[in-house]
């Protein structure tokens, strides 16, 4: 992989975040501060998560899928949700509408995740000559992750910030949020228990992220209607 290829992969991994920020009204309302705060919250959450993982999880020698361990991991994964909750409710934001707030937080969240999880391997991989599809796939995964984060933030803002939402939608919102929050465990299950290869996993992630995005969009607009009416 040459520097050129590294550049390409970096564009694929981090480009969409920038495009999202500049294309949506987020840039007009100058929500960068919110995004940065969300990213910092993500850092703290990741740290807490690491400590929890290190404390409660056994180190497995093999790559087998161990249900009890994975359950524990999924539970620890819910720390993410707690972090997001903190970012959405506890942080003092400048007066921006809820509409933009969740987007800014989701964006910051996803960007921090990309930087933390993908920048270092990309940088290390860029020095090698060997060409693999891994880094391109990883970039696509980052895109899926962005969609997931924003969906989760949208659902979170529906759950915690919006008081008057239709009663019938509440279970659906919670179910969707649950699915999105357990996504890392699901992909890990697919990869290790079912032995899916990386491209297939990424395809699955991309597909589900789009599905979840559409669903949460519909939910969001459905909740918007009574309040605006």
């Amino acid at each position: 992989m040459t520097v050129f290829h590294f550049f390409n992969c970096a564009i694929l991994t981090f480009g969409p975040h920038a495009v999202y920020y500049s294309a949506t009204p987020l840039s007009e309302y100058d929500t960068l501060g919110t995004s940065i705060k969300a990213a910092l919250v993500y850092l703290g959450t990741a740290l807490v998560k690491l400590v929890c993982l290190a404390t409660f999880l056994n180190v497995s020698e093999n790559d087998n899928f161990d249900p009890s361990q994975e359950l524990l991991k999924a539970l620890i994964g819910f720390i993410d949700v707690a972090g997001l909750y903190f970012a959405l409710t506890q942080l003092t934001h400048r007066n921006i509408s809820q509409n933009h707030k969740f987007q800014a937080i989701g964006l910051g969240w996803a960007f921090a995740d990309s930087v933390l999880h993908r920048l270092a391997p990309l940088w290390v991989g860029a020095r090698g000559l060997e060409f693999t599809w891994d880094f391109i796939l990883q970039g696509i995964e980052a895109n899926a992750n962005l969609v997931f984060s924003i969906s989760l933030a949208a659902l979170g803002s529906l759950m915690w910030l919006r008081k008057n939402k239709p009663k019938t939608l509440i279970p659906i919102i919670y179910a969707c949020a649950g699915i999105v929050a357990t996504m890392p465990s699901i992909t890990s299950y697919l990869r290790r228990s079912l032995g899916w290869h990386f491209p297939k996993v990424v395809g699955f992630e991309l597909f589900t992220s789009l599905m979840m995005a559409i669903i949460s969009w519909q939910l969001f607009s459905a909740c918007q209607r009574p309040s605006s009416a």
Binding site: F7, N8, G15, A23, G128
Partner: peptide, 28 residues
């Protein structure tokens, strides 16, 4: 090392560029 060609990377850049443009337009 199995290496990718420069043409491949150029093509990839084109594809990525158009992807980002489409994404931008879509979001706007």
């Amino acid at each position: 090392y199995q290496v990718a060609s420069v043409t491949f990377d150029l093509l990839l850049l084109l594809v990525l560029g158009s992807y980002l443009i489409v994404l931008f337009s879509f979001l706007v």
